[in-house]
Computed example of a mutant assay.
Amino acid sequence: MIVNKFFKNVSVGAAALTLVLTLAGCGNSQSTVSSQKNSSTTRNTQSPENDSMRVVRSANRSIRNNNFQEAYDNLNSTNNRSSEAENLKGDLQNYLTAKRAYNNGDYQTASNSLKPLKSTSTAMRDAYASLQSKINKKQITKTSTSSSSQRVANQQASNKTSGGVVEAFANKMGFTGEKGYSIIPTSASGNIYKLEVRQNNSDNTVSNMVGIYQYNSQTGAVTKLQ
């Protein structure tokens, strides 16, 4: 009887131990599954941000290599862009617009297209500065050429305009020399003259624009153009 009771106790104890180990195993298994799920969830949550960061780095490399369209296309094709990626995409769009205008000789539009940077990209900042410098040089050259051409045109118009024409216009309009007026012919075609009128201040240090007039020397008609 004592032996049988002993074996019964041993059997019960073994069964209990087996149950405990089984439950522990289930707990560990559930914990592992839960941990894997949490890890997967974390990866899924971080993935868009990581993708966005990677594409920003890639775009900056392309910008440094002057592959601006490639950088823009990569950013544009990325979903769930971060604010930095979105800002860099906008900066690139402005840059590409400015570059096209510059290549077409429209330097004013090119300059206006280079709006203030929104991204923190140093590569983009350097590209902006380089293009703006090129635009400024072209604008200075264009202005200088235009001014030179205007001086030549004025001289040619002056040569075609007799003193009698200027005097007749001045008398008609009251633009006499003693009042500080000066009249500059800017174009001449037949009997039609375009004349720029300026007036000096009292000490002759400043010459202010009065207007530009069209004068018909045959009919005496005068039209103020601006």
Rank of each mutant, 00 (worst) to 15 (best):
N4F: 06
F7M: 11
F7K: 09
G13C: 09
L17D: 08
L21K: 05
C26T: 08
N28F: 13
Q30A: 09
S31M: 00
S31Y: 05
T32F: 06
V33F: 01
V33N: 03
S35W: 02
S40Y: 15
T41I: 09
D51L: 12
M53C: 08
R54T: 12
V56Q: 02
A59G: 01
R64N: 13
E70H: 00
R81H: 08
S82E: 06
S82P: 00
L92C: 07
N94C: 05
L96T: 00
L96A: 04
L96C: 07
T97K: 10
A101Q: 05
Y102R: 00
N103D: 15
N104K: 11
Y107V: 01
S111P: 04
S113E: 09
S113A: 13
K115S: 12
K118D: 12
A123W: 02
M124E: 04
D126F: 02
A129R: 08
L131T: 05
Q132D: 14
S133M: 07
S144F: 02
S148N: 10
S148C: 02
Q150R: 12
Q150C: 00
V152A: 14
Q156P: 01
K160N: 15
G164H: 06
A168G: 01
A170Q: 10
N171Q: 14
N171H: 10
N171E: 13
K172M: 02
K172W: 01
K172C: 00
M173L: 05
M173D: 11
G174P: 05
T176A: 06
K179V: 02
I183S: 05
I183Q: 12
I183F: 02
I183G: 11
T186Q: 14
S187D: 14
N191S: 15
Y193Q: 07
K194G: 11
K194Q: 13
K194P: 02
V197H: 09
N200A: 12
N200Y: 12
N201Y: 07
D203N: 14
T205G: 02
T205M: 05
N208M: 08
S217E: 14
T223P: 03
K224L: 15
